[in-house]
Amino acid sequence: MISPVWKVISSLLLMLVSCQIFAQAGDPAVPANPSGYLLLDKGLQYRVTKSINSMYDFDFVTAERDFAVIMYQYPEHPLPDFLMALGYWWRIEVDVTNTKFDKIFIQYLDRANEKAERMYKEDPKNKEAAFFLAAGYGFQGRLYSERKSWTKATWAGRNALKYMELSRGEEEFNPELLLGDALFNYFSVWIPENYPILKPVMALFPKGNKQLGLQQLETVASNAFYTRVEAQYFLFRLYASEEKRPYDALRISEYLHTKFPNNPYFHRSYARHLYTVGRWTESVEKSVEILDRIEQRQYGYESNSGRFAAFYVAEYNNRIGNKAEAKKYYLKTVAYGEESESQESGYYLHSLIQLGKMESESKNKELARKYFDQVKKYAKRKHPAHKEARDFIKKNKL
């Protein structure tokens, strides 16, 4: 059972430490910097904020040019290497099944960790060094858990936890930690609720308060200068899944897509939330934009986003009785699903079922049976799609 344990734990650590570094790097209201910590340098904060905004909008050329300047100015500090790693994390985030950025992502994190380790050895009371080590190991744990490298994920997660505790207690950092505290309050309760086996592990953490965590997230999302974006990112995910507040998820994803129109993750999330609340024509409009950008080879738009977008267009056309267009886009969904190796996803399986039904109606029983057999191949037996495929084959004698 170690797999889900450390996947969830490393994900939690990622959310805590990554949001804390954003909070510290971007708020212009931070007071004077008597500690000498680079994260609290007000001039650098403005520069980093602008650069990270470019990164969010998938303008990596601009962002990394700025990060390289910071690296030149502060060659022994972990911040610029960490920021470079962050840019590669967002490339991974769009499609976590794509491994082509793993190596360079880990290389930048290793460099940041090495520099932070040197700082920490020189001064074990250096909270900034401990903070970067927590962040670096937290991100490594997240990637290793995605890759099912559970031993590495466990090691990284334990290191992240150790340094996260050591990074606390600096007076000047405290106003910047609300987002991290909010996520901790929420997920330290959510994890044992959804994974009872993790209760002994979560006993290592202070006790949280899920409702307080959600309120803190909402406060940050409404009032923070830079961390507003991070808080909104997590809020729309929680509203859409755990909290069952689809209209709130839509409101936030619309804002993020408007602010960062070239971010494919925010783009497809907006299309998804439009579809969820029944604003289908608008969802189709955004989905067609995504598909057009894939055709134009716009950076970051790839098969995973295409699978989402094609499905929404297919479903809309199926609802209005335009079977030819529906079939066209169900086929696109299947093709994008195979390209992204997402054959176990719900959209892929549902598209195969719809295609099978269409071919059955057209008396193409051989092709219909082929689609249903694909569902049985990729869906687990207890999955609703597997049962639907079995029942349809039996009822229609395919």
Rank of each mutant, 00 (worst) to 15 (best):
W89P: 02
W89I: 00
W89G: 02
W90I: 06
W90G: 03
R91Y: 01
R91P: 00
I92A: 01
I92G: 02
I92R: 05
I92E: 02
I92Y: 00
I92W: 01
E93W: 08
E93N: 08
V94S: 10
V94H: 00
D95V: 00
D95R: 00
V96C: 08
T97C: 07
N98H: 08
N98W: 07
N98Y: 06
T99N: 14
T99P: 06
F101W: 15
D102P: 00
D102W: 00
I104M: 01
I104R: 04
I104N: 02
F105M: 02
F105Q: 01
I106V: 14
I106E: 03
Q107W: 03
Q107C: 01
Y108I: 04
Y108D: 04
L109E: 05
L109T: 03
L109I: 07
D110E: 14
D110M: 07
R111V: 05
R111M: 07
R111N: 14
A112S: 15
A112N: 01
A112R: 03
A112C: 02
N113V: 13
N113E: 11
N113D: 13
E114P: 09
E114T: 14
E114K: 15
K115I: 07
K115H: 12
K115T: 10
K115D: 03
K115G: 07
A116D: 04
E117K: 13
E117W: 03
E117P: 03
E117V: 08
E117H: 10
R118D: 14
R118G: 06
M119Q: 13
M119V: 00
M119Y: 10
M119T: 05
Y120G: 01
Y120M: 12
K121G: 09
K121W: 13
K121D: 15
K121M: 14
K121T: 12
E122N: 09
E122G: 11
D123T: 06
D123L: 04
D123K: 05
P124Y: 08
P124E: 09
P124M: 10
K125T: 14
N126F: 12
N126W: 11
K127P: 06
K127S: 12
E128V: 06
E128P: 10
E128S: 04
E128A: 06
A129Y: 08
A129M: 05
A130D: 01
A130Y: 04
A130S: 15
F131S: 15
F132H: 04
F132W: 10
F132E: 06
L133I: 11
L133E: 11
A134E: 04
A134P: 03
A134D: 10
A135C: 09
A135Y: 10
A135I: 04
A135D: 07
G136N: 08
G136P: 09
Y137P: 06
Y137H: 15
G138A: 12
G138C: 04
G138E: 00
F139P: 02
F139C: 14
F139V: 07
Q140A: 09
Q140W: 12
Q140I: 06
Q140E: 15
Q140N: 12
G141F: 10
G141W: 00
G141R: 08
G141P: 11
G141S: 04
G141N: 09
R142I: 02
R142Q: 07
R142A: 13
R142S: 07
L143Y: 07
Y144D: 09
Y144N: 13
Y144C: 05
S145M: 03
S145P: 05
E146P: 00
E146V: 09
E146F: 10
E146C: 05
E146Y: 13
R147N: 04
R147W: 08
K148D: 12
K148E: 10
K148H: 11
